[in-house]
């Protein structure tokens, strides 16, 4: 089962995604011993705001029994522990980490999209249930630089591919799940 969850900022995507992950993987239904769900975190813990965000998410999923694995890029090489589900959060961070080099260089968008999708395929081989949180980043038209436009196009491209692959796509609107597919 692949479930893609999207939405705007501050809309409650994460808490919905966590609930869905536990539900899909059977953690909320079954008393028998199961492998834990893995929370695959892609945000780099640099800077005050990022740390606060990470802390908020940690609190949100505390006591839900997730095992946290951090991976900021190159998901196509990751080895994940045995699990009943993986929650990847989030594509918008992973996209930025892959598109921009450490030295600030901009990589090719299409190649980056392919690399990300290869990473997703690789993860799908290691789990029965994958929930991916992504973001809506393209509904504003500002005077963006080329670097930012490339990022917007990348996320658009990846989101479309993921939605094709997904069994279910949901947009979370202020905490309300709006079905998009499945």
């Amino acid at each position: 089962m692949l479930h893609l969850i999207t939405g705007g900022s501050g809309s409650g995507k994460s808490s919905y995604a966590e609930e869905r992950m536990l539900y899909i993987s059977g953690q909320t239904r079954n008393q028998e011993e199961k492998d834990p769900c893995v929370y695959l975190a892609t945000m780099k813990p640099y800077g005050k705001e990022a740390l606060m965000k990470i802390e908020r998410h940690r609190k949100l999923r505390a006591s839900k029994g997730f095992v946290t694995v951090e991976c900021y890029k190159e998901l196509d090489r990751i080895r994940l522990p045995k699990n009943s589900g993986i929650l990847l959060e989030c594509m918008s961070n992973l996209g930025a980490n892959e598109l921009y080099g450490e030295d600030g260089t901009l990589k090719n968008r299409h190649k980056t999209a392919k690399k990300i999708l290869k990473g997703i395929d690789h993860i799908l081989k290691q789990t029965e249930n994958l929930v991916i949180v992504t973001n809506e980043v393209s509904s504003e038209d500002k005077d963006y630089s080329e670097e930012i436009l490339e990022y917007i196009y990348l996320i658009g491209e990846v989101n479309q591919e993921l939605a094709c692959m997904a069994d279910k796509v949901t947009e979370v609107v202020y905490g309300i799940p709006v079905p998009v597919k499945g």
Partner: peptide
Amino acid sequence: NEIGYGIVPADAFQR
């Protein structure tokens, strides 16, 4: 308005 559907703003207050 729904205002969270764009790129994370560079300005701290806007964020």
